[in-house]
Amino acid sequence: MQQDISIRDDRAAPSETPNFIAPSLRRRMACWLYEGMLLFGVVFLAGYLFGTLSQTRNALDNRHFLQAFMLVVLGIYFVWFWSKGSGQTLAMKTWHIRVLDAQGHPLTQTRALLRYTVSWMWWLPPLAVLYPFDLPPLEVLVLMAGWIMVWALLSRFHPKKQFWHDAWAGTQLVHQAPAPKRIR
């Protein structure tokens, strides 16, 4: 009987971060739009809860408190999904996209909160520019859509094709291969 003896080299190889594949911009934006549709339900329920608890009768009453409440609710939604379990929201699971830190590890709650805060770059610059002007809603919509397209296209200039808010937060979006289907 011949015994297979393998010799293991215990010298550690230099540690390298895994080379993850960034999803295409088209897939990331499709996920972004789908996330917006799913968030409609979250925002609706949170708004209903806020209106009921605060006994708000007019939509303009308590507007700033409602906005702050929504900011917190959305923060809880994203931080929870990004930092717990798979690092995916419901839309990200559908589009097979996962968020990891720069080293390829799952996000901590602190890193997820940082990503949520920095991801407001999708909205804050155009809102800050538009705030002093009293523009009609159609013009606001066109300017917001233009900024979103510019922000998304700027990811083409990132070395790893990531959104810049991900680079600033130390995170990355990666392709998450679907689990193999079981054959019964």
Rank of each mutant, 00 (worst) to 15 (best):
R98G: 08
A128V: 11
A112V: 00
D4Y: 14
H175C: 12
M92R: 03
L127G: 10
R184V: 08
P106K: 02
Q103R: 13
D101R: 02
P125F: 06
I7L: 12
L45M: 14
I148M: 13
F133T: 05
W164M: 03
A169P: 00
L107N: 00
A22Q: 06
L127E: 13
L74Q: 02
W147Y: 12
K181S: 12
P136N: 12
K161P: 02
K93M: 14
D101E: 08
L124G: 02
A30H: 11
I21H: 07
F40D: 06
A68N: 11
Q172M: 10
R63N: 09
V73F: 01
R111V: 06
S24A: 14
N19I: 08
F20H: 14
P125T: 02
L90I: 15
I7E: 10
T117Y: 07
K181T: 14
R98V: 04
R11M: 07
Q103G: 08
W95D: 00
G87A: 07
A128Y: 04
S54C: 13
L138F: 09
R11P: 03
L124I: 15
L113Y: 03
G146T: 06
M121C: 12
L113D: 01
A13E: 09
W80N: 09
A59L: 14
S119W: 01
L173S: 03
M1Q: 09
D10I: 09
L113N: 00
Q109W: 05
L71F: 15
F65R: 08
A152S: 11
P126V: 02
M37V: 15
K84V: 04
I5N: 09
P137M: 05
L60P: 02
L127W: 14
T17D: 14
F20D: 01
T52A: 13
L49E: 11
A145G: 07
V79A: 02
I183W: 14
V42L: 11
G51E: 02
A177L: 08
V118N: 00
N19A: 13
S86E: 15
R184Q: 12
Y34S: 02
W120R: 05
L154Q: 10
Y34D: 04
F50A: 01
L113W: 01
L66R: 03
L33D: 12
R28S: 06
Q162R: 03
L39S: 07
V129H: 06
L127C: 07
L130K: 05
V43A: 13
W122C: 04
L33R: 10
F44D: 07
H105Q: 10
A167D: 09
S86F: 06
N62G: 07
D166F: 00
V150C: 06
T89F: 02
R98D: 01
F78M: 06
L38T: 07
D101M: 05
R156N: 11
